[in-house]
Design a protein around this nucleic acid. Structure first.
Length: 190
DNA sequence: CGAATTTGACCCGCGC
DNA sequence: GCGCGGGTCAAATTCG
């Protein structure tokens, strides 16, 4: 199965179109998640489930056999993150960051690698040990200028091969050309 | 030597 | 009001 099918499923739910066409996220979207069975990239990953969620409707996400993934938002509405212009004043702008809303979707894969090659370039900006999880959660941001897409990567404590990837925001550019996998093509649709 | 990662500190929201 | 937990920053370190 390809993400294209996932797109169709999401589109049939009226969600994908919204994400693809709207930069101003509509919190009224009633869909909290959807699971699609199949394989993201044959061989590398299996048992993927992914869902689109919106933090107002979904403070936590049930994964597989009752595992709980705490979804809390982290959002700064500030400008380019990699520029070292952050002062204590700038930091004040982070106020209310967790109130920001971004289109977001998660998917769960069984994989030996933490970071899926989705065609975009990511820079790690943090790692945190989270409660109720044996494994640290990693935080990545897209390195493209003016692109504020973030993703979190963590492994399930029950099954260290299960990887939860949460994307937040939408890319405002195309993936770089150094990767040309199917996965890239599919995920880039988001 | 520049880019990427690591990691401890800091900040903020939320529950009690 | 306070403490906890999650998210981000940024200096130090590592890597290519």
């Amino acid at each position: 199965m390809e993400f294209g099918q996932a797109e169709e499923s999401l589109d049939s739910l009226g969600l994908m179109a919204q994400i693809q066409t709207s930069c101003s996220y509509q919190p009224e979207v009633p869909i909290s998640f959807c699971n699609i069975s199949g394989s993201i990239v044959s061989g590398k990953h299996d048992l993927p489930k992914f869902w689109v969620n919106e933090e107002v409707n979904l403070s936590e996400v049930r994964i597989g056999n009752g595992n709980t993934d705490q979804i809390s938002s982290g959002k700064d509405g500030s400008s380019s993150w990699w520029k070292s212009t952050s002062t204590s004043l700038e930091r004040n702008k982070m106020k209310g960051r967790r109130k920001m809303r971004e289109p977001r979707f998660c998917f769960q894969t069984r994989s030996d690698i933490d970071v899926l090659d989705d065609g975009y370039k990511w820079r790690k900006y943090g790692q945190k040990v989270v409660k109720n999880s044996l494994h640290p959660r990693s935080y990545y941001r897209c390195t493209h200028s003016n692109c504020r897409v973030k993703k979190r990567v963590e492994r399930l404590s029950e099954d260290c091969r299960m990887v939860i990837t949460t994307y937040e925001g939408r890319h405002n550019h195309t993936p770089c050309d150094d990767s040309n996998s199917d996965e890239q093509n599919c995920i880039s649709s988001f």
